[in-house]
Amino acid sequence: MTALPEGRPEGRLDEPRAPATGGLGLRTRRAATNLFPPLLSAVIGLGLWEGLVRWFAVPSYVLPPPSQVVLELVGEWQYLLTELGWTVLAAAIGVAIAISLGILAGAAIALSPTVDRMLTSWLVVIHAIPKVVIAPLFLIWFGFGVQSEVFFVVTFTFFPVVVATITGLKSADPDVLQLVRSMGATRQQVLRKIMFPSALPIILSGVKLSVSLAPVGAVIGEFVASNQGLGHLLIRAVGDMDTALAFAAVTLFSVFGVLLWRAAEYVEGRLLPWHPSQRGDFKPGQK
């Protein structure tokens, strides 16, 4: 039975919809049953990998067994984490710039037909260029080092935010807009109180996409224009035929990507408790 607001007999007309709340015991048990299948498949997959590599005596520079990757992760953790730190730094600075610029540009395009006509075709053209192809140019333009990487992350993650912001700001309910104008709202009030909040879910989905692209952009940048970071480490490990170290770097990179995605989802849930995509475990009374 879900908790109804106190003092109201059940089933009365006009009862508010009480959101589903599960007990804690139920929830942990459900989490355990949900976690079991992926865990099992991970164990089986890694076991097969380990067994086959050993059975066929595959040289470890071709394909290291998972145990060796784990040893590498443990043995080289300081080195790996330091390089990861550089990648995270470049990705974070780059995506922060991309999000700010993207929201500003998107808002300018959505709100001003003139800016729209001036900027949109440029954006479309630039977006059509495969970013990876022009990565080496960043070396020429911005030199060797983290600044090149940051610029590359910006170009790599800018577009999802722009597109989402434009779509979001243009999708406010026209009837609501008419209603608040009839209340005498100024243009700025309409933007702040209606257009921006109703755009937020769409903007955040663009931001989420950008955030998940940022580490990829940073690593590509490091392949080309940096002597730091996981990308650089990867290039070096592969050059040294140290495939286990490369796998360790990739593993770390994946874990980082998953954590980043989770963090973005968490922030989204905090900002949009009212949105249909987030309502599942939202309880009234918590704000």
């Binding site: 009862e15 919809r17 704000k287």
Partner: peptide
């Protein structure tokens, strides 16, 4: 008055 803190999606059409 008791639903001041509720969100619209938690209310029926009449409310």
């Amino acid at each position: 008055e008791r639903f001041a803190g509720h969100y619209p999606w938690q209310l029926s059409g009449g409310m």
